[in-house]
Design a protein around this nucleic acid. Sequence first.
DNA 1: GATTAAACTTGCAAAAAGCAAGCGACTTAA
DNA 2: TTAAGTCGCTTGCTTTTTGCAAGTTTAATC
Lengths: 128, 128
Amino acid sequence: MNKTNPKNCLPENYRSACPIANVLDIVGDKWTLLVVRDLMMGKHRYGEFQTSPEAIPTNILAERLKRLEAAGLVKKDFYQDNPPRAEYFLTSKGADLGPILQAMGQWGAQYIPGIVIPEQFGPAEIRD
Amino acid sequence: MNKTNPKNCLPENYRSACPIANVLDIVGDKWTLLVVRDLMMGKHRYGEFQTSPEAIPTNILAERLKRLEAAGLVKKDFYQDNPPRAEYFLTSKGADLGPILQAMGQWGAQYIPGIVIPEQFGPAEIRD
DNA sequence: GATTAAACTTGCAAAAAGCAAGCGACTTAA
DNA sequence: TTAAGTCGCTTGCTTTTTGCAAGTTTAATC
């Protein structure tokens, strides 16, 4: 271990101590926040996410749901065993991403021509 | 052209009419918003961005600055010709990403252990 | 004249994304 | 009572993006 490397003072594999950088390491890609958006709009099942107009590839959807669950943003609740079928819900940690989505929605509404403001997020059901 | 494809009604290469999806197509990756963050913190030159603790690869920095400029979020101002040297500034469109960064900062401060809240963004200088 | 520096560019390997097909466990229609 | 269909994924493979290191250009400094 190199004592002169300041990253040794950080939790492992943090890029930096900056909150923004760390948030981006969780949701900084083109798909993750769209899944969160769908969860906020009341979607809960795999097939429902696939009906969104962006048409997320199925392998990426599966992987993102796993990552969101691993990060504690999403809870996977099985409602039957055979075949295993589950519903996905935001935890309070995940639901607290709401302000980020809202800020994005506002910016997009202001600056991107031709967009359609979606029906407001309902009060997303939370399961911790 | 397939008239039954609803995407034909959208501006070219939009994934959907959702503002969030469109914002993610601009800033939805691990680096772009860190460059915007640095601009908000008063950094303006290529070398300054490279001093940030996340250590952005130089080719990615160059490409992101080009994309931000192309998207109208950043203005490149040359302050000498030979060799060509420029400073980068947020436009008002770029500066209006502030609420997104603030929302991320807040979420990170609340949920990511070991992060350090950076000195507040100054009132970023805007050049349109 | 050699070294250093700033702001990039280029080349190449590694990782992630995207697409299509497959799979296991039921459900429904013939 | 098969046969076809659905749901929630997984697998294999190609393409794109990322990441790292080294190189380039112009000029100032030693």
